[in-house]
Simulated assay, not measured.
Amino acid sequence: MKISVSFTLLLLLGSVPASEGVECQRAFPEDIYAALRETTASLVQLKADVTLQTTEQAAQLKTEVDKLKQQQQEQATQLKTEVDKLKQQQLVRQVAFSASLLAGGQVAYVGPFSAHTTLIFKNVVTNIGNAYNPTTGVFTAPVRGAYHFEWTVSTPADNSHASGAVLVKNSENVFLAYEDQATGSMTSSKAVALFLDVGDVVFVRVWANTRAYDDPGHHTTFSGHLLFTM
Rank of each mutant, 00 (worst) to 15 (best):
Y132P: 02
Y132G: 06
N133D: 15
N133I: 07
N133T: 05
N133G: 07
P134N: 14
T135Q: 15
T135A: 15
T136F: 07
T136K: 02
F139Q: 03
F139C: 10
F139L: 12
T140Q: 10
A141G: 03
A141V: 03
V143G: 00
V143W: 01
G145F: 05
A146F: 12
Y147D: 05
H148N: 10
F149R: 01
E150P: 00
W151M: 03
T152E: 05
S154C: 10
S154Y: 08
S154K: 06
P156G: 12
P156D: 13
A157L: 09
A157I: 03
A157Q: 13
A157E: 10
A157D: 13
N159L: 01
N159F: 03
S160Q: 14
S160W: 06
S163C: 15
G164T: 07
A165M: 08
V166N: 07
L167M: 07
V168D: 01
V168G: 01
K169I: 01
N170A: 12
N170S: 10
S171G: 07
E172D: 13
E172W: 05
E172H: 10
N173M: 07
V174W: 11
V174F: 12
V174C: 12
V174N: 09
F175W: 06
F175L: 15
L176W: 02
A177Q: 08
Y178D: 01
E179R: 12
D180K: 15
D180A: 14
Q181P: 00
Q181K: 15
Q181V: 11
A182F: 14
A182D: 10
A182S: 13
T183Q: 14
T183N: 11
T183C: 04
G184K: 09
S185F: 08
S185R: 13
S185W: 11
M186P: 02
M186F: 00
M186L: 12
M186R: 15
T187R: 11
S188I: 10
S188Q: 11
S189Y: 08
S189W: 07
S189A: 15
A191K: 06
A191W: 05
A191C: 11
A191R: 10
V192Q: 14
V192I: 15
A193Q: 12
F195E: 11
F195R: 13
F195T: 09
F195M: 12
L196F: 02
L196G: 06
L196D: 02
L196E: 04
L196P: 04
V198G: 01
V198L: 10
G199N: 09
G199K: 11
D200S: 03
D200F: 04
D200I: 02
V201N: 13
V202D: 06
F203G: 00
V206W: 02
W207E: 06
N209D: 12
N209E: 09
A212C: 08
D214W: 09
D215T: 13
G217P: 01
